[in-house]
């Protein structure tokens, strides 16, 4: 099954995971690239996106698996034809055959940007660094059985913190499968444990995916 590496940026970040699936299903059709369909009462085009992205989060490393029906089309041509059928903000970077098994996808590098409209509070970077150096960081987690507490520290492989202008940028590598840490929880941790450092706004971006050996995942 071929795989597409694509990015979701700009206003496209407001599309939901299901919206994005629909967008690709139509884009393949518009590009004249018919997809195979699932069997069953209500056949659906075979496309699947590896890790559903939360609404509002940017990404430059999304992975889409698909299965074309009919004649072979070269990967670079699929890429070009898809890009001419997509919308602003969704761009296929590369299409390739024989991607790694999704179950080997283990880590995600993401950028969490905390914006302070009145400038970064004195010593914020230091204090946030110290926070993520703690042994435990408990956060509320919504589950089927109500709200439980979860320690997020074991799910954070590394975090680098930089202050720049009115922003504090947290460059983090986190677990993305079994268990999964949503990067939004990183800023949630700041707001919970350092409430005076609660940013005016937080932005999130997925940068790269890695396998269990911390090599780039494709």
């Amino acid at each position: 099954m071929p795989r597409a590496l694509f990015e979701k940026t700009g206003n496209a970040v407001w599309m939901s995971h299901l919206d994005l699936m629909r967008l690709f299903q139509r884009a393949f059709k518009r590009a004249g690239l018919p997809l195979t369909h699932t069997q069953g009462f209500n056949p659906r085009p075979s496309v699947s996106i590896a890790l559903p992205l939360s609404v509002g989060v940017e990404s430059q490393c999304e992975l889409l698996d698909f299965d074309l029906d009919g004649a072979q089309v070269p990967c670079n041509e699929i890429c070009d034809r898809l890009n001419s059928a997509l919308v602003a903000g969704v761009r296929v970077r590369e299409v390739y055959e024989n991607g790694s098994k999704i179950k080997n996808l283990a880590f995600l590098r993401c950028m969490v940007t905390l914006e302070y409209d009145n400038g970064v509070p004195e010593g914020a970077g230091e204090r946030i660094r110290a926070l993520f150096a703690s042994d435990r960081l408990l956060l509320d987690k919504k589950s089927k059985n109500g709200i439980t507490e979860q320690d997020i520290i074991p799910m954070i492989r590394s975090v680098e913190i930089k202050e720049e202008g009115r922003e504090v940028a947290l460059d983090a590598v986190v677990c993305c499968q079994n268990p999964t840490l949503n990067p939004m929880q990183i800023s949630a941790a700041v707001s919970r444990y350092l409430p005076e450092l609660t940013p005016d706004f937080a932005k999130f971006r997925r940068i790269e995916t890695y396998d269990t050996n911390e090599n780039v995942f494709r």
Partner: peptide, 11 residues
């Protein structure tokens, strides 16, 4: 809710 309906940018 459903922020995509406020942004435009459709095909």
């Amino acid at each position: 809710q459903k922020p995509a309906r406020y942004t435009g940018g459709e095909f």
